[in-house]
Amino acid sequence: MKMGKKTGEQTFQFANPPVIIATGTVAGPFEGQGPLAEEFDLVLGDLHNGENSFERAERSMLVQACRLALDHASRGSAEVDLFLAGDLLNQIISSSFTAATLSIPYLGIYGACSTVAEGLTLASMILDGGFAGAILVATSSHNATAERQYRYPTEYGGQRRPYQQWTVTGAAAALLGYTGHGPRVTAATVGKVVDMGCKDPLNLGAAMAPAAAETIACHFQDTGWDPDSFDLILTGDLGEIGFKLCRELLAEKDIHLGENFSDCGLLIYDREKQDVHAGASGCATAGLVAFGRLFRQFQRGELTRVLLVATGALHSPTSFLQGENIPCIAHAVRIEA
């Protein structure tokens, strides 16, 4: 069978690259104190967002982000063919409850913090394949809901490790269309699950770095592009330790990344003033940076080619307690003006 759109081992190139028409971003109050505050559509005043539980707060953020994306595109939810979303909570309740509110045909996806790239990849394939004209992609995370599920109660007084990352409170959505104006998703590299023997759920950056390195190397190999082809190569939420490891792993493969290599987890907070240790993590990390900052930079003409490599740790609290390693994944999407 001839597969015209697949190139190399794991990369798909789109014949009619789908357009990111509009985005919507909602950030938590702590994220609103960071250096990217100006790049978000809405910054919340408090973590509850007017709801009586943090889970409902996360859900309301996600609904807000989706509505913002639709408003910016001046479209109603009836004009959207599909809603692809995922989050960190068990059974992706934030996404599914949001889908119930929006009433758009829904496919729930899970890729932990790589969800935004998984969503963009799937949406692009569906659009390029001619199965839909407009798809809404979204993801969310909330510091309090993630901490409760993966770690301790919010008010528990434990000391954080210096290599730990801070889960971002936020939600991000993007409307992709078959036609329209905006940056285009021209290719995507779907990652393989990588297990390099990491067990520490407090150091997910180190666990995810090999997956990011594999996917980046694979993208270059499959497409023949090199690091200099891009204005920016942006990993998801590796944080300080993971980012350094990823750079070293790529250098070992003779791929030397320069100043155009960065990590969303290092951009969201002011790490001098905000005590977040190794940086940001959570689905909203890559979501907020991609749909908040990158989208605006593309609109302002500051960027022409970006490789977004969102990374995810695919463990669960159960698998960790049973002594399993942390399996990780990274998906890359190439976005061009």
Binding site: Y163, M196, G197, C198, N203, A206, P210, I241, L245, E248
Partner: peptide, 9 residues
């Protein structure tokens, strides 16, 4: 790889 992680941690 675990040795490498220890170096950066």
């Amino acid at each position: 790889y675990q040795k490498k992680v220890k170096k950066y941690e």
